[in-house]
Amino acid sequence: MKRLPLYYRYFKEAEKSGTDRVSSKEISDALDIDSATIRRDFSYFGELGRKGYGYNVKSLLKFFMEHIHGNETRNVAIIGAGNLGSALLNYKFSNINDRMNVVAAFDRNAGMIGTKINDTEVFHSDDLEKIIPEQGIDVAILTLPAEAGQKMAERLEAAGIKGILNFTPIRLDVSDGIYVHNIDLSVELQALFFYMKNF
């Protein structure tokens, strides 16, 4: 699952450069993933390529777009427009996903309310329950301090959010119908230091 977005990005770049087909070795060299792993990954989804021919770029790009992103557009809100939230708002998400729109941000800082960051308006957190249904938002990126994370997750669930990308260092307690993906930067850094030391 973690490799699928890498494959999608690779095929997207290949299409931009006008490439019609690629081999598993070319993909391997570009992504530093073993060719056998690539063939095994692709075979999991059926016959995506032909021996001696390789993989058709447009076909694979369409395939991965459907399997990673689905056919519907996702409206996303960033909860917490501080340093990390603002950085994410300034990030070009279209490089990752053509079907993802960051349509709103929420914060309590009075000085930010009503402003726009990279064309996305910042609303007051008190208006969250009103704005989320109005904008058809079903995904939230949570960039709040740890102590505010759980209460906000409960509010997001009640407002209709179906998926949360959680940058807070706590594990959120939500219903089974809500998918939470946790990104703890301190844990990721510790893992990096461990690999640097031991491999």
Rank of each mutant, 00 (worst) to 15 (best):
F42R: 10
M152H: 02
L172Y: 07
G160D: 12
G136I: 04
T115N: 11
T143G: 05
Y8L: 04
E72R: 14
I137G: 05
I183E: 09
E47Q: 15
H124K: 12
D29S: 15
F45K: 06
R155G: 00
A81G: 03
D41Q: 12
G18A: 05
G82Y: 00
F64Q: 01
P5E: 07
H124P: 03
G80R: 01
K16H: 04
T143L: 06
D34Q: 15
A14H: 09
K151Y: 00
G18Y: 06
E154H: 13
A105T: 12
M152A: 04
Y53N: 12
I137C: 05
N166Q: 09
I137P: 00
V174C: 00
A191T: 11
L60S: 09
F123R: 10
A148W: 08
R74M: 03
L6Q: 15
L189A: 13
A110C: 01
E134R: 01
I68N: 10
F42M: 04
Y8Q: 06
Y55M: 07
G85I: 09
F193Q: 10
V57R: 11
G85A: 06
I79G: 02
M196C: 09
D20V: 09
R40G: 09
T115V: 01
F93G: 06
A14V: 07
I183L: 14
G114Q: 12
I137K: 04
I68H: 06
N90T: 12
A81T: 12
M65Q: 14
I178Q: 10
D126F: 03
N71G: 15
L31W: 14
A158R: 09
I131V: 11
I38A: 00
A148E: 15
I117W: 05
M152W: 01
Y91C: 13
H124M: 02
F45D: 07
D29Q: 08
D20A: 11
L84Q: 13
L88N: 04
D29P: 06
S86G: 10
L165I: 10
T120F: 07
L165R: 10
A158Q: 11
R74K: 05
D184A: 02
F199H: 14
L4I: 04
